[in-house]
């Protein structure tokens, strides 16, 4: 009986303490940053607006492998592969429906060529929803983004214009299929 009453008093006391402690927050400074009057510092790895980058040679990095599209949890990336006359793959169109995008960054993680990257720009609101559908020409930048030195085709085995078979990094020249020599 007394134990039960004691417990109840303890509970009520805890509530009163809570009320008092919360009340004291009236005299604390608010944590709110008053954006847009005050611009916040954006960290370089912030997951904001998506860009397509170019490799150090200035060519499109995207090889239209579709991995970003399949990694996308909201399926907001659609693209079509095409290739140039020398067999280099690139996207014929590359479309992101930003009205669906949740900025999760899975596409960036999935990208094997560092082509798709998220940037610290988050101010992407539009008045018309249709304007949130972005095509490749809206997203392609003239730079390497966060990763400066990577060039996928330098390490891939596929021959493209300017790089024949056996000319990639760590490759032997093509074998002579007519030779039986060891």
């Amino acid at each position: 009986m007394f134990k039960a009453i004691g417990k109840q008093i303890k509970i009520i006391w805890s509530q009163i303490v809570t009320l008092w402690l919360v009340f004291l927050h009236l005299f604390k400074k608010a944590d709110t940053v008053e954006y847009p009057d005050v611009q916040p510092y954006m960290f370089p790895r912030w997951r904001g607006r998506i860009v397509l980058t170019r490799d150090p040679d200035g060519e499109e990095r995207c090889v239209a492998c579709n991995l970003c599209a399949v990694a996308c949890p909201v399926d907001c990336i659609a693209l079509q592969k095409t290739e140039d006359e020398n067999g280099r793959w690139y996207p014929e169109f590359f479309r992101i429906n930003f009205s669906r995008c949740i900025m999760c960054g899975f596409c960036e993680e999935a990208c094997p060529t560092h082509a798709i990257q998220l940037t610290p720009d988050f101010e992407m609101a539009e008045y018309v929803r249709q304007d949130m559908v972005w095509e490749k020409e809206h997203m392609l930048i003239n730079g390497t983004g966060k990763y400066h030195d990577y060039n996928f085709y330098r390490v891939a085995g596929k021959a493209i214009g300017g790089k024949g078979k056996g000319e990639a990094r760590n490759e032997l020249p093509p074998v002579d299929r007519r030779s039986l020599l060891p």
Binding site: V22, H25, L26, A30, D31, T32
Partner: peptide
Amino acid sequence: RFLGFWSDRL
């Protein structure tokens, strides 16, 4: 507003 103040917001 008061809820804001009490949770360190504005």
